[in-house]
Amino acid sequence: MAEYIPDYVGTVTKYVFVESPSMTAGELALRAYEASEGVLIKETCFGLQVTGEPESVDRLIEEIRAFDPTHIFVKDRGFPPGDPRRCRANLGGARPGYLGHEREFRLLRYISRGLEELDRREEGDAEPAPPARGKRPLLDIKRLQELIDIEES
């Protein structure tokens, strides 16, 4: 049985996702590098991975979030960046977690909208409630008629 000697002991790695109309992953990376102060930054297609001492990472994350608070999202990662055990090149395909991110990435615009709306509303103004199952905004009858007319014309 081979012995396992870990790298990056005592560090944390976090994913930073950006889903913003005003900031690309590349721009995010540039600004993050400026603020990095020794925290390891790896650019990815969806944003960044940052790795370092927990306190340093927390500080950097706080700064990064401030770039575009409602469009930047952060999540813990178990592996350090570029780990061959998770690398697409070695696995032949994306690790399963990537597809899970894909699933939630589609929803981020709704979350951004929620964060913006909550910022806008006064404290206590919002009446928070879990989304009702299957409830969708109703289509106005006049609007429906218009749509039918357009289709048939």
Partner: peptide, 10 residues
């Protein structure tokens, strides 16, 4: 190896 596919493929 693990065949590479996207979420839409799933």
């Amino acid at each position: 190896f693990f065949p590479d596919i996207a979420l839409a493929d799933v």
